[in-house]
Simulated scan of single mutants.
Amino acid sequence: MEINCVFAPATDTPDHIVLAEQLGYQRAWVYDVPVSYADTGATLGIAATRTSTIRLGVSVFTEHLRHITTNAGLIAHLATLAPGRFDAGVGAGFTSSAYLGRKGSRWADVERYVEDLRTLLAGGEIERDGTVLSLMHMPASGISLPVEVDFWVAAHGPKGFATAGRLGAGVVTNPTHGDEPVPFDGQCQLTYYGTVLEDGEALDSRRVIDAAGAGAGLALHMGQYGPLAGMPEAEGYHEAIAAVDERHRHLELFRGHLMEPSDLDRQFLTGDVIRRGTLTGTRDEIAASLQRLVEAGANAVLYQPSGPDIPRELAAFLEVAEQFRDTPGTSSPNTTASPASEVQHA
């Protein structure tokens, strides 16, 4: 089982990616939300020049935020800086759509988007809006086509999994697929939010709220469609966000998304919300969670550290994960055992 990490990128994320490589993480990805995070390309460009073995990637590109040629050019540049170790995730758009007040893309459009990106990176031509498009890097640019990268699809339902299967891509998803294992046979990474508790540490301590609050905030944002369904905190958050002016509600809903809890989020972050909305736990509890993820069909876990002490989060989680992998009888996929629904997750 691969132990990977993903960041809501900040200006110090390149330092954290260097540390992740030193610690032994196999991949380090960043989210792509330019209205909230440090720039994706600048972050990974710096990290690429300071690392040599860890795989870098974006989770995920969408067609909402940039023209397809801009994303293709960025992928080509990053893959050149990190040859043989760049991953490109693509999705229908959840956060990026919400920030723009739009709905996500249709899966047929996502499939075409990946196919067109592959064509552009191979040096071919595509047609969009009646215009022929191509990447045209000359030798002086330092970028040579074709460029080969591994593609991943952010999928959370049957249409997304089917799209990934047709594309021959890996899947990035979460462990909330009902009473059945993840319905995908290829490479599958399950996201993991939360913090490793110190001995005797309370779930509602200041450190835990700061470190796990961003992941729990996502659960609040999901409301009745997420792991906090039926909880008074989820209902209270829903009422509070509904009171925000409609023209700005979509902005407040995702303020601080997966980076740090907003002032509104913090009003509803309790120990119970941390417990149900993230995979926070003791070392033994996190090892048990990792085993359930393996049994749900994960080939890899994609851990997102957050809070004021990212180095501590990276080191603590990897220590638990490595002990888990080294324990006899663990890490053997068994798709007939413990369903993913047993894992509370945002």
Rank of each mutant, 00 (worst) to 15 (best):
M1W: 12
C5R: 12
A10Y: 11
H16M: 14
H16G: 11
I17G: 00
A20L: 12
E21I: 04
L23A: 01
G24L: 11
W29N: 03
V35E: 11
A38Q: 09
T43Y: 13
G45D: 01
T49G: 10
V58G: 08
V58T: 04
S59D: 05
V60E: 03
F61I: 10
T62R: 10
E63W: 12
E63P: 04
R66H: 06
R66Y: 07
T70Y: 14
N71H: 04
A72E: 04
L74P: 06
I75E: 09
H77M: 15
G84P: 03
G84R: 04
R85L: 03
G91D: 02
A92Y: 07
F94K: 15
F94E: 13
F94D: 11
R102W: 12
K103A: 15
R106F: 10
R106P: 01
A108M: 15
E115H: 01
L121R: 03
G123T: 00
I126Q: 04
E127M: 06
R128Q: 12
D129I: 04
T131D: 11
L133R: 10
G142P: 02
I143A: 07
S144C: 12
V147Q: 09
A155C: 01
A155K: 05
G160K: 00
F161A: 05
T163D: 00
A164C: 03
A164M: 04
L167N: 04
A169I: 02
G170D: 05
T173H: 07
T173S: 10
P175S: 08
D179N: 14
P183K: 12
D185C: 04
Q187H: 14
L190A: 04
L190Q: 07
T191W: 11
T191S: 15
T195G: 07
L197K: 13
L197F: 14
E201M: 13
D204Y: 09
S205D: 13
G213V: 04
A216K: 02
G226T: 01
P227V: 11
A229Y: 10
E235T: 12
G236L: 15
Y237Q: 03
A240G: 00
V244R: 08
H250F: 05
L251Q: 06
M259P: 04
M259D: 13
E260D: 15
E260S: 15
S262N: 03
L264N: 00
Q267T: 09
G271Y: 07
R276C: 10
G277N: 02
T278Q: 00
T280Y: 07
T280W: 15
T282F: 08
R292L: 14
E295V: 06
A296I: 00
A298K: 00
V301P: 01
I310C: 08
R312S: 06
A315W: 07
A315E: 12
A316E: 14
F317A: 14
L318S: 05
E322I: 09
Q323F: 10
R325N: 06
R325K: 15
T330Q: 02
S331K: 02
S331V: 09
S332G: 12
T335A: 11
T335R: 13
S338Q: 11
S341M: 12
